[in-house]
Amino acid sequence: MKSAQQDSAISVLADIKKRYVHDRSVFIPGRQMKELLTFLGASPEDVEKLRTASESLKDDPTLPFRKTQNGRFCLDSGSRRVSRLESQPFVLSSEEDFVRHDSGELRRFHEIQNDLALNPALHALFALKFLLIHGMDTVHRPLLAYDSAQWICTLFNIRTTTDVSLLGEPALEGVHSDGVDHTMTTFLGCSNMTDDSATTFIHDMREKNAVRWNETSPELVVGTARHGDFLDTLLLVDHERKHSVSPVYTIDPDQPADRDMLIFFTRRPALKGHVSYPYDSMTAHRSLPMSADLPLLDLDSEREHVPVGS
């Protein structure tokens, strides 16, 4: 029998999903995320460990102001499991609305280690995202297997730094999409960062790719959000909403400013002809295995149907 606390958490999740389906984006405050991650199996101690997940990041392959690690995971709605997949090169193309100097370039990132991958708080984040996207209709991207029961989720742990020599740009590419179906961004923390840094602007798909955040058309901005508290989380339907992010600015200009994030890129498996098809292995990771349950909760019975792209 469900407790009143469980009923409340399920009701909150159903409301978030209802807003996500209707608006095609949703912001979840960190204080609410803490409660939801605990409901989904993480202890308060597990959640607190996320604050320091970015301390051992490695240099990014193409961006000098960033340190990164990534990992690939499969969210399987058939088996209701999330499991880790073997490492692969990463690529995003201009055809996927990602226009930057390294568009179409194969990038190889250092791998996320077990201190993060085996943390039940991360498993709860996967579970939360799965619950919010499962069964949701979206505009289809070309050459993705929408008849599949599986999702490919590429997780990035990123630290963006501004110092006396570099301006940290969370989205150097300007207005863009991430080549996936659903993007989720979760804030882990910051230091020496001003309160007006790193604002996310959500754009209508008619906005031009690669336009800087402060040069966009105001009439095509459909929302804004700013990650400022631990675990603040934003979800976007990536092929229906573009986004841009303002830079990281320092409070004390003589000291670096850091911003730490988890970014979850989630899409259906690639089909032959897709730029990522050669790098979309479904083989389990041998040296860094991980597998966890995804919850059996039906959030859809409490929300109305909203047409795709509305």
Rank of each mutant, 00 (worst) to 15 (best):
D298M: 00
I158G: 06
D147L: 14
D178A: 04
D15S: 01
P44K: 05
Y20L: 03
R159V: 11
L166G: 08
V175T: 14
V47S: 02
A149Y: 12
H134R: 13
P61I: 13
P278G: 15
V221A: 08
C153Y: 06
T283L: 09
S79D: 14
V12K: 04
S11K: 15
N209F: 07
S291T: 02
S54Q: 06
F130T: 11
A145T: 11
R241C: 10
Q255W: 12
E169L: 11
E45M: 09
D232R: 06
T200Y: 06
R267D: 12
I112Y: 13
C190W: 05
L118F: 04
H274Y: 08
R24Y: 06
G78W: 02
S3L: 08
Q32L: 12
R19Q: 13
H274T: 01
Y20M: 09
Y249Q: 07
E219V: 13
R24L: 02
L166P: 12
F201C: 07
L40G: 00
S8W: 04
H243A: 14
A53G: 07
S8L: 05
I16Y: 01
R141D: 08
L92S: 09
S191F: 01
L231T: 05
F109E: 00
L236Q: 01
S54T: 03
D178H: 14
R80P: 00
T68K: 01
L106G: 07
T161C: 08
D204A: 13
L85Q: 09
P29G: 06
G273C: 09
Y277G: 04
S8R: 08
F73D: 03
R267E: 15
D254A: 14
R66D: 03
R100S: 15
L167N: 02
K2L: 08
T162V: 10
Q113W: 13
S103H: 04
F39E: 07
H134Y: 10
H239L: 03
A225Q: 01
T52G: 14
L262D: 03
S56I: 03
E55D: 10
S77N: 11
D46F: 07
R107Q: 06
Q255A: 15
I251M: 02
D204K: 14
A198E: 12
S83G: 10
V245K: 03
S244H: 14
A127Y: 05
P295I: 00
V180H: 10
P170T: 13
P295M: 12
L85N: 09
G189W: 05
P278Q: 13
L125D: 10
E304F: 14
T38D: 07
S310A: 13
V221S: 03
D46L: 00
T138G: 10
R286Q: 00
K58H: 11
H110A: 09
D178I: 07
H243M: 08
L118M: 04
R31F: 12
D204V: 12
P289C: 01
D260S: 14
W213M: 10
I16F: 12
L144E: 09
E35C: 04
F187T: 04
P64S: 11
V139K: 15
S165E: 05
D232N: 02
D252E: 13
P295H: 08
S177G: 15
L132Q: 05
A121K: 02
A284S: 03
V237S: 15
I133P: 04
R259W: 10
S310H: 12
T283P: 03
H101N: 07
A53R: 05
P120S: 14
W151R: 08
G135L: 13
R19F: 04
L172A: 00
F265C: 13
R81C: 12
